[in-house]
Each structure stands twice: as C-alpha cells, then as structure tokens.
Design a protein around this nucleic acid. Structure first.
Lengths: 187, 187
DNA sequence: ATGAAGTTTCAGAAATTACTGAAAGTTTAG
DNA sequence: CTAAACTTTCAGTAATTTCTGAAACTTCAT
C-alpha cells in the first residue's frame, strides 16, 4: 500500500506526537493511518505502508486494542483481520484521557493518600505532607471535572467550550438563582 | 542531604510520572524534591539527595527553567544558586499544559492547516482531509477552552469544577437569558 | 489429520535517550 | 590579575526502549 504525500506527512507527524502521548512512534503511525483510511486495513497493508515489520504491526495493534482505540472486522471468504478506528475523533480523545487517568493518575492519588496517613515526624515533614495534599487535591479536582465533562454530549460540550471565559458570567447568574438574596456584595 | 522515607517514595514516583509528562525521570525527581522542600536547595544537595551526577543536575535545572517551573535565589555571602519551585501547584499544572500546547499542539495545528490547503486529488484523499479537519477542529476547541480556563482565577475554577455535570443545567439557564423568545423547540 | 493462511511471541539487534565526569567556562572577592 | 567557588558543556558510556524476523501458535477448509 502506498500513502499519498499528504497522508504520509500526517502519519509521520502523528507518530512523533503519539510518542509524547503515551504510545510509541509506530503505534501512533498505525492509528493515524487507520484514521485517514476510508476502508479498514489488514496487517500486511499497514506494515507495507509504514515500512515496518509484521511483528511490530502485531504489537502495535495489540497496544491499540489495550487502549480500546480500534475495531477488528472480517470480510467474507477472507481470513485476514481488518482494522479500523473505533468511534469518532472525540471518542478517541476521551479514551486516551481516560486510559491515562487509569494508568497514571489513579496510582498517584493512591500513593498520595497513603503518604497522608501517618502524622508528620517533624516540621519539614509536615511541610512535605501539606504539599502532597495540595497535589492530591489538584489531581482529584481535575479527575472529577474531566469525568463530568465526558458525560456531556459533544454538542453541549462544544457550546460550553465556545462560551469560554463567559463561564464566569454564567456562574454569577447561577448564584442569583440559587441565592436570590446574595450576601457577597464585593463580588 | 537525606530524604525522609515519605519524601523518597514521593520523589521516585514523580520521577516515573514526569517521564510520561514530557520530561525525563531525573527532571521529575528534581522538581518533586523542590516542591516538598521547605527551603530552597542548591545543586549539590539535589545531586546528593537523588544520587545523580552534578552535570545531570545542571541539565535538569536547565530543563526546568525552560518550562519556567523554578526560581533561582541567592543567600548573602554564599555564591551558590538556590532553587525553589515557582508559583503554586496550580501554576505548575498550568505551565505544563501551556508549554506542551506550544511544543506539541501548535505545530500539529499548523501542519493540519497546511494539509487542508490544496484540494483533494481523489475520493480517498477527500476522506483523509475530512478526518484531518476533524482533528484540527478538536485540537482548536480544546486549545481555546483551556486558554479560557487558565484565565479564570483558581477559586472560580474550583466552583465551576465542583459544579461538574451541573454545567448543562446552567447552560439552559443561560439560553433562557440570551434568547427569551427561543425559536428552537426541539432543544 | 493436514496444510495453507494467517497471527503472535520473543530473543537478540538497533536506535534512542539519559547519565557521568572531566574539562571548559563564569563570577566574584581580594 | 588571580584564584577560589561555582556552573555548564559535551564526548563517551550506560540504560532503556523499540524493532526485526524466524519460530511457534491458531484457525479453518478439505
């Protein structure tokens, strides 16, 4: 399989990006290639297009499956497995966030909680624990927030995003509703 | 310098995390160590605490400076440079997002825009371009959104985050305000 | 059961990334 | 200007990660 000029630069670029986003170059390239292909591809086509060994393609596919990013399909009378991206681009972004949360943030939160458990031996340890608590709280807030956002349907999300900084205005509207007799004159 | 048990596990863990967040293990460890230290540290202390060469500490410091994550200070009559983390934990998170946006997202957006420029040669190229446009739009939306969020002060942000999925309710309130004579009955 | 058509595994090789430590560079006090 | 006290650089080495390709495995048609 031959990639067009455009597809080629896209695929190579995403290989590099992928390596900063939690998977290696080849995995990034395979995913990028699948995304821009209008039909599902089998392993040999992929390997040929990317100049990569059959074994490497197999490992890449496996990795993408562990991220739940691809679908496997079959064509009647053909024994090969055909791969295509699962869901929309938005789904992909969500999956990657979600998966990284599980793999990176959750273990960190759990470590930080453990380290909070026993009381500090001295002043400098108290300081360290305080900082760890701050990090814990930050991670937890971000985690909750992104989980909530993922529940919104893409349209609402887009509306919300377009709103941007306007959200702070909305917040005050909300305050008026919830507490019509607002008691915070300075804000 | 000797790290306490707790600080040690924190620092090592953040070394590993750091390597998934855009800098290498040592850089992550140095930053973690500085965050939990109640006083600024000089390069030798850092190297000794982390069991790492003087040269490596120097490179790590340089890297952290390029991310604008640390401050340098001096003590009268002492020629050494003392390092401490710059800003709050929130500032740190913002900086890292911001810096990665500049280094990774911006070049990607620019590539994707270029690839949109000339019209597709055939049907499959048209498909590829369409997908690239979707990715472009997604990245752009996320970029704008996070830029806006960074402008909010941390308190507002926290309120907003606590709100979570409640945002969709807020959105409808906003709709009532903006278009009291709403003409979209199906939404 | 057999073998053709495919996929996966994994030991070793290649490529990449990170680290060391000695030499070069910088800054300041006298 | 000199030397002491630091910091930075960078060539070579070490560690880690990724990739290859041959062998093992699986599945299915006959």
């Amino acid at each position: 399989m031959q990639m067009s000029q455009k597809v080629e630069s896209f695929v190579y670029h995403f290989g590099e990006m992928g390596s900063k986003w939690g998977f290696n170059r080849t995995v990034g390239q395979i995913y990028a290639l699948l995304v821009v292909s209008d039909k599902a591809l089998h392993a040999n086509e992929i390997g040929e297009a990317l100049n990569v060994s059959r074994g490497n393609v197999s490992m890449g596919i496996k990795e993408l499956q562990s991220w739940q990013l691809i679908n496997v399909s079959h064509i009647p009378k053909d024994r090969k497995e055909y791969y295509s991206p699962k869901g929309t681009i938005w789904d992909m972004a969500n999956r990657v966030f979600e998966e990284r949360r599980k793999r990176e943030v959750d273990p960190t939160l759990s470590l930080l909680r453990d380290l909070q458990l026993d009381s500090p031996a001295d002043e400098s340890e108290a300081y360290a624990q305080e900082k760890m608590r701050e990090i814990h709280d930050l991670l937890e807030t971000i985690t909750h927030w992104s989980a909530e956002l993922q529940r919104l349907d893409p349209d609402k999300l887009t509306t919300l995003m377009k709103l941007g900084a306007g959200v702070s205005k909305i917040l005050s509207i909300k305050d008026q509703f919830k507490r019509p007799k607002a008691d915070a004159p300075s804000e």
